[in-house]
């Protein structure tokens, strides 16, 4: 029997769901292999009987906590996708401020009618079975994870830093050009796409399992960053993992 799939959106830009839709070439095989029953961004029908729930976005309201708990009860597998869902992502910026101020800044006079809580990744609310990192997720990685689940294998989660793939594709290291980079402590699997494209790594795939934070800070400092700059660099995607890097 084909596994029943649901894709849910929480607080996010929905870019990761778009990445699933961007799997144009694989789409015929995807729909042949999976029974997609709930996916608000692409279909109106929906059902609550799903096996695998992919979750896009982070949890930022009390009502989202309740919704996540319900999904956890129904699904056999819960898989957060993207930086928002896996790390809290850019949404965690608001955690740096009191929640009342945040509400006021966004909703002005209507603030009392809204609820907000500090942003958190999905695994901080419910147990998860796997996760697909990245802002946005890498299409090929999404397909690979689906293939591995279908084949009954434990999906493979890369744990080598971005530097490894950055070297494999033959990039000149940005530190050689006077820039700075979070590649040495960030989970690879994106083929260092930002460096290849002429930018630097901002750490959107989250930290590797055992990052050498002291060494990373040392090279950032050597490259001229102040403590404040370093905090900013880590905060972009990894604010929720402050306990690891601060």
């Amino acid at each position: 029997m084909k596994p029943k799939i649901a894709v849910f959106d929480f607080t996010c830009c929905e870019g990761c769901q778009l990445q699933i839709l961007n799997c144009e070439q694989e789409m015929p095989d995807l729909v042949a292999a999976l029974d997609i029953i709930t996916f608000r961004e692409v279909m109106t029908e929906r059902s609550d009987h799903y096996d695998i729930a992919f979750i896009d976005g982070s949890c930022t309201t009390e009502s989202e906590i309740a919704r996540l708990k319900e999904i956890r009860q129904r699904a056999k597998m819960v898989i957060p996708i993207g930086a928002c869902a896996c790390l809290g992502g850019v949404n965690c910026f608001k955690n740096l401020h009191p929640m009342e101020d945040v509400l006021k800044a966004v909703y002005g006079q209507a603030a009392p009618y809204y609820d907000t809580i500090p942003a958190r990744p999905i695994h901080a609310v419910i147990p998860i079975d796997f996760f697909i990192p990245g802002c946005p997720i890498v299409k090929e990685e999404f397909i690979r994870v689906v293939q591995e689940i279908l084949a009954g294998k434990a999906p493979y989660l890369p744990n080598d830093p971005v530097c490894a793939e950055c070297k494999m594709v033959g990039n000149v290291c940005v530190f050689d050009k006077g820039q700075t980079c979070l590649g040495p402590v960030t989970r690879g699997g994106c083929k260092a796409t930002c460096v290849t494209g002429g930018a630097v790594c901002w750490g959107c795939r989250g930290l590797i399992d055992e990052p050498n934070i002291n060494a990373e800070k040392e090279i950032l400092e050597k490259a001229g960053l102040s403590i404040k700059d370093i905090v900013e660099e880590f905060s972009l995607f990894n604010a929720c993992q402050e306990d690891v890097w601060k």
Binding site: D160, P161, C163, A164, K167, M168, I208, N212, A215, E218
Partner: peptide
């Protein structure tokens, strides 16, 4: 203790 385990030294 300073090693980032980044693999750069072996990749190149």
């Amino acid at each position: 203790q300073k090693c980032l385990a980044c693999g750069s030294c072996t990749m190149v």
